[in-house]
Each structure stands twice: as C-alpha cells, then as structure tokens.
Design a protein around this nucleic acid. Structure first.
Lengths: 248, 248
DNA sequence: CGTCGGCTTGAGGGAAATCAAACGATGTGG
DNA sequence: CCACATCGTTTGATTTCCCTCAAGCCGACG
C-alpha cells in the first residue's frame, strides 16, 4: 500500500485513524474506474466545470493558470496518491487548468458517488477536508518562496521538497529521481524564466550540488541544498535538519 | 446581517442554503464569546499550537511568516466575517503567526465546542470545508500575482481586490476605504520592499489613478487600475469587466 | 524639544528578464 | 541514409526592474 502524506504531516494523531478509513473508502470507490491519459492531456480546462474528482495512480499532474499574454504559473504539482479536483465539489467553475505532465492513469469518482459516500461514511468527508487543508498548507509554503525567495532558494526548495514527497510515497529511496518537467515547467512553477532556471541549474551543477539531465534529478550534496533552502523553509522542515546543520 | 463572501463566489447554488445554515450555527456559537485584541497582538504564534478558532467581528488580521533573516511574507488578510484558524482543527502545530493589524474584536470557539457542533449539525462541517476551500481559491490567485506579476500589477490587483471584498461585506460603497496597513505591510504582502511600494504608489498618484494617505485608500480611476490588473486577474474577474474594457 | 515610526526621495548596484542565436537530441519523410 | 524540422537546452550580450544603502522629512507623542 502506498504511504500517504498524512503520515509525515502535522495531522493531529487522534485523527489519523479517521483519515485512514476515509482514504480506504475512497481507494475502494475508484477501483475499476481507471482512465489513462497521454502526456499533456487536460483533465479540466480553465473556466470549465467538472463533475468528477480524480485520484492519481501513476504519473504527474499539474494545476496551472495561463494569462492572456502567455505568462503561465504552475500552481501545484500532483503525484501518485494525490486527490485532484476536490474543490470542484463546492464550486461551479474554476479558473485553473489541470493537465498531465506525463502519461497518467487516474481513478475517477463522480460527484454523485462521492456525495453518497460522504453521507454513508463521514470519514470520507473528513478525508476530503484534510486534503484541501493539506493543499493549502503546501501553498502557504510556496507563497514565501515566490514572494521572498531568490531563484537559488526556490530551486533548492523545490528539489528537496520533491525528493521528500517521492520518498514518502516510496517512489524513490535514493538521492535521485525521475523529474518529468522541462526547464520551462520549472520556471513556470517557480516564477522564473527558462533562461534563468538554466543558469541556476548550471551553477548547482558546477558547485557539484545537483544535476538535472534527461529527466533525471540527481542530488549530490543534499546538505548544501539544504543550506540554501533553509532560510525559506518552514519551522518544521528546519527542525528536522537542526542537528545536521550546526550554527557557527 | 453581514453579507458573506459566498454570495459572490463560485459556490454551487444548490449548496448555498447549507452554507447559510452552517454559518448561522457558527454565528450563534460565538455570541457572548467575544474577545478584544489591541493592534499588533498575536492570536497564534508561529510553531505554536491552538485549541480554538476565531470569527472576526471587527478589525483586520493577518497570517504571516517571518524568516530567520527577517524577510517576511504576509500570506493572507482577514476581514470582518472571516473565520480564522480553521485548519488548526486538523493540525497539531502550524508555522504561521496570526496577528492583529488593527484593534479587533473576535468571537472565539473552542475546538471541543466546534466538534460537538459539527456532529450535531453537519452543515457546520460543510461550512468549515467551504471556508478552507475558499481560502485556497484566493491563494491560487495570489500565486499568479506573486510568481508572474509586476509590482504595478500586484498593487493594482490588491487594491481592487480589497475594494471588492469590503464592498461585499457592506463596509464601503464608494471608491475609498480605510486601509490599516503600513507600506511595509503592503510590501510584505506583495513580496516587494517598502521603498519600491512607495515609488509605485507615487506613480499611481501622479497618474491620478489612486491615492493612499493617512490610512485611507482612494481609487480615482478604477478603470485604469483595472487595465493594469487585468492580465493577472482570473477569468471570472475579467469577465465582469469585459463590457467596460473594449478590446482594440 | 527630541525622538521615534512611517513616509519619501536619490544614487548606485545586482538579480533576473529579454533578446538573440547556436546546439544537441529525436523524429520524419523523401 | 541523409536532409530538415522540432523541441528542449545552453550560452552570450544587453536591459530593466527591483533592491540596497543612505539620508531627509513629517507627524505623533512623551
């Protein structure tokens, strides 16, 4: 069974069991409703409506918004195990597009079924609420990075964050992982241009901190990345590294 | 009765009634539990725990995060009618500080009471879920602004957004409103330095678009601001102004 | 009257954007 | 099999937006 991100989060321990049961109900509901999407395929288009939510089995999705003049912001990345589109339960339309970064297989649940499930098992509603809260939690983190971080800090933070997320999911145990994003994607996520992302990556490479090549990210010196990202991380992330990074 | 932001949002109409009932229960629960805080007083400190949530009666609150080197990001602004700290129901600790921008009176509900209320009336749980979803919705909007907007765009967007929020709450009907933020606050919210905020404000003033003086914001040319903010607004906001801003 | 917080303005520097072009893979069709 | 088109990456030169540093100003307040 795939580990859930709740295990490592700040979820109140007394709620963990409720969480797990809700999750299990949802997992059961999507069995047999898998859909396969090719890379680049939109699941939801900007300004459109939707009557289903998704649970990713394999592949990466992104939520993004594109401005009329072409500027684009990738708001969040979704990995296997994530629920996607939960807010569409509440809102008629939504201004973001959700699309595949890689080929992806996702389980589909229609709103009607989910509503029924919520009524029958209130842990499901709880699970959905937790999902939204967790996503917001993550957004807070990125707000700091976007608003106050330098290009280096944003990059370092992103790589460490992805490594940790993938580890938690058991999708990698080493310091290297598959990263199915072009440098353009990375720029759109971090609010930088491709050109500048490229330059910063070169700097990381030359400092032997990490390499990004052929869709593979390899972290050579996690401590160094950690030192760069440290200032823009939140209290909890910093606490985990307190022992390793001794202050002068 | 104060208008709620759900009225103008994309909340599914069939849920509006549920929303209102949940809101009413919460409103009833806070009666008589008012607390008064002076300006600058923290309600929740970064890294701390909390066993209560708040509903603002009067005054402004901010959620902010401060980095060890002094950089600061104001993540969100809370106005009268807003619920604050709802996510603390789910998480043990949280990395943000929540504090008063002005003197404020807030209704307090303890987690225990809220839990009971949720069990008795499931509309309450729904109301809480909507709150989190709505806040996330708003964060998405700011991500674009922070990641891809210019200083002018961010400022214009903020003023228009605040004006609209205050109008919806019935706290202003004109183009001017009380803005209890220093330019430092504004900078911390938009990811800019005070100095640069000041320069951009001067530019707005010299272009006779808007003035900020003695804690009062006065919008003189809303269309012009709208033209500046337009590109970084979401589809829905733009649609509202389509008629007014004819394309060339 | 002095000081303190917030506002304002100037001068200079730096981080990231823009503009432009070349390069390397990968794929495709003649 | 090679011409060539496409897509992503890489690098250089230049510009611009915003930051930093610094100082003066204004009103509030003890």
């Amino acid at each position: 069974m795939m580990a859930s991100s709740a295990d490592q989060s700040q979820l109140r321990p007394e709620l963990l069991d409720t969480f797990r049961r809700g999750d299990a109900w949802i997992a059961r509901a999507v069995v047999g409703n898998d859909k396969v999407f090719p890379p680049g395929q939109p699941l939801v288009t900007a300004g459109g409506a939707s009557d289903m939510i998704f649970r990713i089995r394999t592949g990466w999705l992104v939520r993004s918004r594109t401005l009329p003049d072409g500027r684009r912001q990738i708001i969040s990345l979704y990995l296997p195990g994530d629920l996607v589109g939960v807010k569409s339960l509440l809102f008629t339309r939504q201004p973001d597009a959700i699309e595949c970064l890689t080929g992806a297989t996702v389980g589909v649940i229609h709103h009607a079924d989910l509503h029924r499930l919520c009524e029958q098992h209130c842990e499901v509603a709880f699970r959905l609420m937790w999902h939204i809260a967790d996503e917001e939690f993550r957004l807070h983190k990125w707000m700091i990075s976007l608003g106050r971080g330098t290009a280096e800090e944003r990059l370092a933070l992103m790589f460490l964050d992805l490594r940790d997320r993938l580890r938690r999911l058991g999708l990698t145990s080493s310091e290297s992982f598959r990263l199915p994003m072009t440098q353009q994607h990375i720029g759109d996520h971090l609010g930088l241009t491709v050109v500048h992302v490229n330059r910063m990556l070169r700097r990381f490479r030359e400092a032997r901190m990490m390499t990004l090549k052929a869709g593979m990210a390899m972290i050579h010196d996690a401590d160094a990345l950690q030192r760069i990202a440290g200032p823009v991380q939140d209290v909890f992330q910093r606490e985990q590294h307190e022992g390793g990074v001794a202050p002068a």
